[in-house]
Nucleic acid binder design. Structure first.
Lengths: 231, 231
DNA sequence: AAAACGGGTGACACGATTGTGACAATATGA
DNA sequence: TCATATTGTCACAATCGTGTCACCCGTTTT
């Protein structure tokens, strides 16, 4: 399990939203819902989703318009779109794909089909997650080999601690509250005690101990945690 | 990107040719168009393309016939083929892959998907065919003779394990998820359980056991597998 | 000074992930 | 055609990872 994926669904029919929400939730995705285009843009500006499920028939501005606007904006250009069309609307499909959609599903669809499409599109859209080795104060983390080396000592680390450390190293010198960390590493819809963060911080520090790089993770009392090379 | 790649599209519907042409042009490929099989052969004799996009439903000789002829000729045998099929034509896909196609795309398709497939196929096709002996930490693999030698012990290995090992050895020190491995070794068209990867990893390790080179294949829990000479 | 708070830490149970042998279906080759 | 390999799946076992909890100890508040 790599990073947690967020999916935005833009769909005015609530039953469908709920069914999708249920299916995706169980499969470990975070779901953000929007009932119309305006709401969708709000949600997008809040947090950029990894994929957009877009109904083609919407009140107000249509799905196609939404897709075009997404493709026009540098920020949202690369977010893949899967569109939901009514049965047999061939023209919709064609115009949708031209507007930049990556795939479509014909209503009614099964959760299984939905999952298959989403997985396939996500896989194709983000082939290389991120770039090379991240280094902070001599601590090196390599996403490609999934390895952490401190000085010249290997750091043995579990998946969650890896994600935690990776997140901290890409945002050094910044404090994050437990809530923020839960959001970004566990995912928005995970119901997990805040204290769990403490435990993982502890485990991360322990894992870093042999290399002497514990202490990089600092506690900011009453606020949260921070990775910092300064004392 | 050093070399400029030439792609030949064989497709009788002009709108599709134009859409593809537009997409590929922007991505920096040279495109040669052909409306039927005869034209296609003319173009091929003019300049050998790096990849052929082949519609399966063509006037006159069908796509499958074209593919067969390509595979029969020494010159064109190694040019990868991506076929374009209508949705749900399962038999087409099967017969197509049997006839030597490397991948397929179902119409209608998005430019993004098209690009992804083309890139993937080209990547798979070009670096693999140059064949020196690959060696990692004393484990030698010869693509030509299809043999693996560890230290001085012969490694007995089946076709799938050979491909697996070959892939790992050309990408050492990198983690690959089960999904990635399925994509790149089994190909996108196979529906195969993810756990099947585990079984083949096991078989590969067993095959390597006599030479002591098991342990080269490491498990990265929660992520995937990696070949590494480091512990 | 006592109580409340915030965080560190070890233990533990549960679930998730991976290893492994067996099996049926299929492909391959004599 | 028959014998042999190969392959994908499954069921079960072995490990490992994760989230909670209880308890401790300093710090801050009352």
């Amino acid at each position: 399990m790599a990073l947690r994926r967020t999916i935005l669904i833009v769909e005015d029919e609530k039953p469908i939203r709920e069914m999708v929400s249920f299916a995706l939730g169980r499969a470990g995705y975070d779901l953000v819902e929007a009932g119309d285009v305006t709401e969708a843009f709000e949600q997008m500006s809040q947090k950029l989703p990894d994929l957009v499920l877009l109904d083609w028939m919407l009140p107000g501005a249509s799905g196609i318009e939404f897709a075009r606007r997404m493709k026009r904006d540098e920020l949202t250009r690369d977010v893949p779109i899967v569109m939901l069309t009514a049965r047999g609307e061939e023209e919709d499909k064609v115009s949708g794909l031209e507007a930049g959609a990556d795939d479509y599903i014909t209503k009614p669809f099964s959760p299984r089909e939905l999952m298959a499409r989403i997985k396939a599109v996500l896989r194709r859209a983000s082939p290389e997650d991120e770039g090379g080795v991240i280094e902070v104060a001599g601590l090196k983390l390599d996403p490609e080999s999934h390895r952490v080396v401190g000085g010249d000592v290997d750091v043995e680390i579990g998946p969650t601690e890896f994600r935690l450390l990776s997140f901290f190293m890409t945002h050094p010198e910044r404090v994050f509250s437990r809530t923020q960390l839960l959001d970004r590493i566990w995912g928005r819809n995970a119901y997990v005690e805040e204290r769990t963060v403490d435990v993982h911080i502890l485990r991360l520090r322990k894992a870093l101990l042999p290399s002497g790089f514990d202490g990089l993770i600092q506690t900011v009392r009453g606020v949260g945690y921070r990775l910092s090379s300064k004392t």
